[in-house]
Write a protein that binds this DNA or RNA. Structure first.
Length: 445
DNA sequence: AACCTCACG
DNA sequence: ACGTACGTGAGGTTC
C-alpha cells in the first residue's frame, strides 16, 4: 500500500515539492460515503506519520433521541424568539444578523459599543452581545435563541439525514491534507465539533452510541499542547510542574500571583488558564485583557510575571520566530514543516500573523503528529491482539473506540499505552491519557 | 459565493 | 500609530 502510494506522490512532488501532497482512495468500495484521504506531508521527512488503511467503521446514532430533542429545542427556540419580539415591539428575522443589528442598535437604541464588521454592519457576535447583557434583558433571549437554533440546525436535525442507509451508521471523512499544522480535519459531517461546552449542547453526545453489546471508550491526552510547550522550550519550571503531576493552571496561578497553590482563587486559576492557552497562540496583552475583561495594564503585568516564572517559554517564542525568519519555515518535533512566507512581510499585521503561526504550529503540529503515531500504534496493537474493538473517531487530542463489553479492560490498557508511548518528549516530560467508558459519547467522557 | 456567526480542540 | 489568539467545518442570510 505504502509503495503504491509513494509512486503517485512522486508525480505530485514534481509539480511542487514543498506543497502538502495528497492522495485519496476509497477505504471501503462498498460504501459511497466512506473515504479516507491519505497524504504524505513531506517526502523528505519519512518520520512524519501518515494514516494508511486504518479501518473506519463509522459511529452509531440514536435517531429517536435526536427526533425528540429536536421537538424540545423547537419549542424553546419559539419561546426565546417570542420574548425577543415582545422586547423589540416588532417581528423580524432573528436569524439575520443584519436585521438584528438594526433592531438592537437603531430601533431599540442600545449602545452597540462601537464595534462594526469589516463590511460596516453592526457586529452581533456572542462576545459583543455578552457585554450588553446588563444593558437590556432582550440580550439574554437572543443568546438563548442563537444557542438553541445552532444546536438544532447544525446537529440535531442535520446528523440523522447523513446516516448511511446501508450501514445505519454515520461516516465522516478524516482529511489528512487540509489543516496546515498537520491536524486531521473532519467533514461530511464534521464530527470534531460536536457540542460539549453547554448543558443543552452536550446532550447531543448522548445520541452517539456503540454497536450492540459494546460500549464507547474515549481516551484523551491531558494538557498535551502545554506539555509540548514545556518539552520543546525546555522550561524547567513548567517541566517540574508536569513531573510533579500538578494541575498546570493552578501551579501557573501560584507562580504568577506569588501565592501558595492552596491559596489560588478561582479567578486566579481562570486567568492563569487563559494565559497558558494564550501563550500557545502568541496572544498579546490586549487580547488577554479582552478575553478576561480586565485592563490592558493588568494583563501586561500577568504576562510579564508569566514570562518571569517560565523564562524558557518566552525563549522558545523568540527562538521560533527567529528560526522562521532564518529558514522561512517552522517545524514539529518530527520534522513536519510549515512554510511561512509572510514572516518577511513589511506589513506588520501580516507579519504578526506569521509570527504567531511560528509560535503555534510546532506545538499544535507536534500534538497532531503524536496522536497520529498513537492511532497507527493502537490500530496495529488491537489487530495483533485479535480484538474486535474499532477506532471510530479522532478529535485532536481524543480517540473514541467502539469496544465489545468483554474487551473493555484489555482494550483500555492497549489504548492508554499506545497513546502514552506514541512519542517520547524531550526532557522526559510525562504524557497522560485518560480513559472513560459508557453507553454513549457523553457517558464515556 | 461572500459574509456572519458559532460548534470543537 | 497599528492591530491585536492558533487550527478547523457548517448553517443561514444576503446579494
Amino acid at each position: 500500500m505504502r509503495d503504491i502510494a509513494l509512486e503517485e506522490i512522486k508525480e505530485y512532488a514534481a509539480e511542487d515539492a514543498d506543497v502538502t501532497l495528497q492522495l485519496k482512495h476509497a477505504f471501503d468500495p462498498l460504501l459511497d460515503k466512506q473515504e479516507v484521504r491519505n497524504v504524505f506531508q513531506d517526502i523528505e521527512n519519512p518520520l512524519v506519520p501518515v494514516l494508511v488503511d486504518i479501518e473506519y467503521e463509522g459511529v452509531g446514532v440514536d435517531v429517536e433521541f435526536l427526533r425528540d430533542y429536536s421537538v424540545a429545542l423547537e419549542r424553546d427556540i419559539r419561546i426565546a424568539e417570542e420574548n425577543v419580539f415582545n422586547h423589540a415591539g416588532v417581528k423580524f428575522n432573528l436569524g439575520s444578523p443584519m436585521q438584528l443589528g438594526k433592531i438592537l442598535f437603531e430601533h431599540m437604541k442600545i449602545d452597540p459599543g462601537a464595534k462594526k464588521t469589516k463590511t460596516g454592519q453592526y457586529a452581533t457576535g456572542e462576545d459583543i452581545l455578552a457585554k450588553l447583557r446588563n444593558k437590556h434583558q432582550v440580550v439574554e433571549d437572543i443568546l438563548v435563541y442563537r444557542e438553541l437554533s445552532k444546536l438544532k440546525s447544525t446537529y440535531v436535525d442535520a446528523l440523522p439525514t447523513l446516516i448511511n442507509p446501508r450501514t445505519g451508521r454515520l461516516h465522516t471523512s478524516f482529511n489528512q491534507a487540509v489543516a496546515v499544522t498537520g491536524r486531521l480535519s473532519s467533514n461530511n459531517p464534521n464530527l470534531q465539533n460536536i457540542p460539549i461546552k453547554t448543558d443543552r449542547g452536550r446532550e447531543i453526545r448522548k445520541a452517539f452510541i456503540p454497536r450492540e453489546g459494546c460500549v464507547l471508550l474515549s481516551a484523551d491526552y491531558s494538557q498535551i499542547e502545554l506539555r509540548i510547550v514545556a518539552a520543546i522550550s525546555g522550561d524547567e519550571n513548567m517541566i517540574a510542574a508536569f513531573k510533579e503531576n500538578k494541575d498546570i493552571h493552578t501551579a501557573t496561578a501560584a507562580k504568577v500571583y506569588g501565592v501558595a497553590e492552596t491559596d489560588v482563587t478561582v479567578d486566579m486559576r481562570r486567568a492563569a488558564k487563559a494565559v497558558n492557552f494564550g501563550i500557545i497562540y502568541g496572544q498579546s496583552a490586549f487580547g488577554l485583557a479582552e478575553n478576561l475583561g480586565i485592563s490592558r495594564s493588568e494583563a501586561k503585568t500577568i504576562i510579564d510575571n508569566y514570562f518571569t516564572q517560565y523564562p524558557s517559554v518566552k525563549g522558545y517564542m523568540d527562538t521560533s520566530i527567529n528560526f522562521a525568519k532564518k529558514h522561512g519555515y517552522v517545524q514539529t518535533l518530527l520534522g513536519r514543516k510549515r512554510w511561512l512566507r509572510d514572516i518577511y512581510s513589511a506589513n506588520q499585521t501580516v507579519r504578526g500573523y506569521a509570527e504567531r503561526n511560528a509560535i503555534n504550529m510546532p506545538v499544535q503540529g507536534t500534538a497532531a503528529d503524536m496522536i497520529k503515531m498513537a492511532m497507527i500504534n493502537v490500530h496495529k496493537a488491537l489487530k495483533t491482539n485479535g480484538l474486535r474493538t474499532k477506532m471510530i473517531l479522532q478529535v485532536h487530542d481524543e480517540l473514541v473506540f467502539d469496544v465489545p463489553e468483554d474487551e473493555v479492560d484489555t482494550a483500555r490498557e492497549i489504548i492508554r499505552d499506545g497513546m502514552q508511548s506514541a512519542m517520547a518528549l524531550p526532557h522526559y516530560v510525562p504524557i497522560n491519557a485518560e480513559t472513560g467508558t459508557g453507553n454513549n459519547w457523553l457517558e464515556a467522557h
